[in-house]
Structures are given as C-alpha cells and as structure tokens.
Design a protein around this nucleic acid. Structure first.
Lengths: 127, 127
DNA sequence: ACTTGTATTAGAGTGCACACCAAGGTATAT
DNA sequence: ATATACCTTGGTGTGCACTCTAATACAAGT
C-alpha cells in the first residue's frame, strides 16, 4: 500500500526514536496509532505532527505528566478549549521561568569569562 | 564558636538541601568542606558561593560531570586559566543552544494560544 | 538521666524518560 | 526454503541526580 508510513519512517520524520514513539503512545501523550492488518502502526501526517510537538515540548523541558494532561484535554474534545488555553499558558509561563534561569546562568558565565584575569585572586568572584 | 555555619544554615543560604550539599562534596563538584572537632562540616562564605554557583548551573541544565571537569580545573590551580575559560565558553554555548530550543517552544505555545479558536478544526495546527 | 537538636556515614531507594532485549510474526526477494 | 527487513509485545535495564534510611554520636537544656 502506498502512502503508508511505518514506524521507521515516522521516526525519521519526527526525529524521535521508534522506542520513544511507542513509549509516547503507551503513556498516552499521543493518541493510539492506527494499525494495518498485521498490527503494524500506520502513521498519518497528523500523527507525525503530534509526535514532533511532544518531542519539542519534552526537549524544551516539559515533563510527560504535564503533556499527558494536555493530551487528555484534547481527547475530551472541543468543549475543553478554555482549559486547554489555560494549560498552554501555564506551560509557557513555566518555560519562560526556566528561560530566565538559563539566561541568568549564561550571564554569570559571561561575567566570569570576561573577568577571569582580574578575578583569579578575587575571592568575591572565584568559585 | 561564633561565625560557624552548619549544614542546615548552609542549606538555607545556598538554597540547596543538606543531602545535595553532601552529594556535591562527595562527587567533587565542590571542594571538601572543613570539619569541626566533631566531624561536622563548617561552611565558609566562599563555600556557600561555590554551592550556589553549582546549584545555579545545575538548575540551568548543566550536568554534574561537566561541572566536575570545571571543579577539577579549579583544583589544579591558576595555570589552567585558558582551559577554564574555554570550558566556560563551551558551557555557555550549550546553555545558549538550550535557550534557543526553549524559546522556540515558547513561541509555538504562544502561537497556539493566540490562534486556538481558528485552529480548533484546522488539522495543520492542531496536535 | 533523658530528651532534643544537630550532625555523621554507608548504602539503599526513587523517579524520570527512555533504551534495550528476547521471542515471535509477516512480507518480499533470491 | 531461506534470508532479510520490518514490525510486534512484555519486560528488563540504564543513567542521572538526587533523596531517604538506619545506625550512631555529641552537646546543651530541663
């Protein structure tokens, strides 16, 4: 059959290992994937997008259980729109916080880099 | 004795749990802490700064083994200055990369938040 | 003398997010 | 018929960074 995407291809397209894809399906952050007559997963483009999204959010630092909450809202249908948006905002705010922390760590590293000579013997800035 | 800081106080000041402080000492990302006659750790302000720095870097996403490399350079003395600076730059660059990923995740969340209504039925943007 | 508070150690346990493995099924090519 | 390529499942293993537990010890307060 043409246009059928196996897990190997899906893995490449979504930049997510087959094991991870199966794991995501198992824990429920992606919806169950359609199977062919042999029980093999057949991925649609939408499936790929979902996997990519989840992978992206994971890489950024969101954890599985948070993403599961969102996946559950999606599965419950359109009447959960407000909750979904609230959720997305919460996660965004959390990432924003994380970003601030990371930025301040970068700043501290830059400070050290720029002032290393003068601070070699300066207890205030040496670690 | 006045001016002696026990692990509990050190924990508060550095916002790091006593267990974590002991762990950091054990793995070597902070130097061995001075002990009093009973074997209790006595933290100096510099110790506190070191712990805070390591905690900060950990929170930002650097891993223990990277920080251990740096700690080893410090322990080897001033002649490792160039290596230290190189190291700091590497870590900064890694954090910068991570920051970019986080930012793009935030962007994607914001896009979803801003366009939720119109995309409820739009397969291109729904996950 | 006893309790309370603070600390020590070695080592075991935890939680997360996968990664790996064995045993097996199916389909196509040679 | 046999190799190969792809997939399935259930279960086990891994690495990281803590976190907790048990057994012990000391010092000060009542």
């Amino acid at each position: 059959m043409k246009n059928m995407i196996g897990i190997k291809q899906a893995s490449k397209l979504s930049e997510t290992s087959p094991d991870t894809i199966r794991y995501y399906e198992k824990v429920g952050i992606i919806a169950p994937i359609k199977r062919d007559k042999n029980g093999f997963r057949q991925f649609s483009e939408r499936d790929i997008r979902r996997i990519k999204f989840m992978r992206h959010m994971r890489t950024a630092g969101l954890n599985i259980s948070s993403l599961l909450e969102y996946a559950n809202l999606i599965q419950q249908g359109d009447q959960t729109k407000d909750e979904r948006v609230t959720f997305l905002k919460e996660q965004r705010d959390q990432l924003q916080k994380q970003l601030t922390i990371t930025q301040s760590a970068i700043d501290q590293l830059n400070y050290k880099i720029d002032h290393y000579d003068e601070h070699m013997s300066d207890a205030k800035h040496l670690i």
